[in-house]
Design a protein around this nucleic acid. Structure first.
Lengths: 189, 189
DNA sequence: TTATCAGTAGACAGATCTGTCTACACACAA
DNA sequence: TTGTGTGTAGACAGATCTGTCTACTGATAA
């Protein structure tokens, strides 16, 4: 996840990409409604007309933001789990990496649904796809067998809980011990 | 929770109470930033001056909303658990009640932190107090003994996960079976 | 060379936001 | 009777929001 925000936006050639990167940073940090188009185009160094030539409206930018966030997050998640051994315990290590990021602000999809889910149903649809993909990846960490999917669903539930808790806790990593305990109890069950 | 929104706002005597009830309904349903003062005062049937006489600014109304939400939710939660037997399984039944409400839109505190936590630190502080109170109530469902608090923390984590999942799932109650499984594994552990 | 594409700056419209202000009404207690 | 407290309606200021518009620039391909 850090790779994304470390990208120097000025170096990115296309205006569309600069808009997307800037929107990603601002939407995630300050929230979607709190971030105006004017600020995005100003920080992306792009003209207003150019923005509206690439995105018919703000909603389209929001969707594009979430789509790109989805791809990046899933790629990071798979990679982090692989680096940490591709077993259930790797979940703790991977999430620990994420929670330790200085710009960690929780799950973009949970936040998006909470903020605008009632107004923009697209956000809910993308969030569902995202969580489905997360579930599939978690499932691959488990031994095949009956009830693997149900087990993965309970683990995914706990992971969502940990992400949310990491967001309101003073020290995000305080969410890890309760998650580890839930994980161990579930895997043994 | 339904009791709250069933209250006929016009019947409430004081302007302050009408403002709080209306803010509660609109903030919870549409989000905090999406809800303007003008709409709140108009739907509460209150003059603008009256609003600003009771609340110095919108932030104060937001805090008051969350404080009142906190009290109401905790009262409902204790009561629902008692009605369902005051054991860990009662959690499923109680949450099932909540998730089944037509106006269910997740946890007001998780949503608030996600939407404005970075801008209004008060929201994070209230959210922490709220989740601490939830933890204490969950702890009372468990047999005393070593590790009861840690167990309660893992259960609370799973509960937060279930609340979040119920919010983005098409059928909120789909979050209950994975929660039940996590709960059983944890209580047995 | 000329059309097309992707870009720039910045004014503008119209809505909506928070917060302030004036002027008035009514109940009630000292 | 005279404050005081609580309420009303609604205009206003100033900022900010999304989205449109005009007019210009430079590169590149037919």
């Amino acid at each position: 996840m850090e790779i994304l925000h470390a990208t120097a936006i000025a170096d990115v050639a296309s205006a569309r990409e600069r808009l997307l990167l800037t929107a990603h940073r601002l939407f995630y940090r300050h929230g979607i409604r709190a971030t105006g188009i004017d600020r995005i185009i100003s920080e992306a160094g792009v003209a207003k007309v150019t923005f509206y030539r690439h995105f018919p409206g703000k909603s389209d930018l929001i969707s594009a933001y979430l789509e790109s966030r989805h791809e990046r997050w899933i790629a990071w998640f798979s990679d982090a789990l692989r680096r940490h051994g591709d077993d259930p315990e790797a979940l703790i290590a991977a999430l620990g990496e994420w929670f330790g990021q200085p710009d960690f602000r929780g799950c973009a999809f949970i936040n998006g649904v909470g903020e605008m889910g009632a107004e923009l149903p697209d956000i809910v649809a993308i969030a569902r796809r995202h969580k489905q993909a997360m579930l599939t990846i978690i499932m691959r960490l488990l031994k095949p067998g009956k009830g693997r999917k149900q087990l993965a669903e309970s683990i995914a539930l706990a992971v969502d809980g940990a992400i949310v808790r990491a967001q309101y806790e003073a020290n995000p990593r305080d969410a890890l011990p309760p998650l580890r305990r839930a994980l161990k109890a579930l895997v043994r069950s």
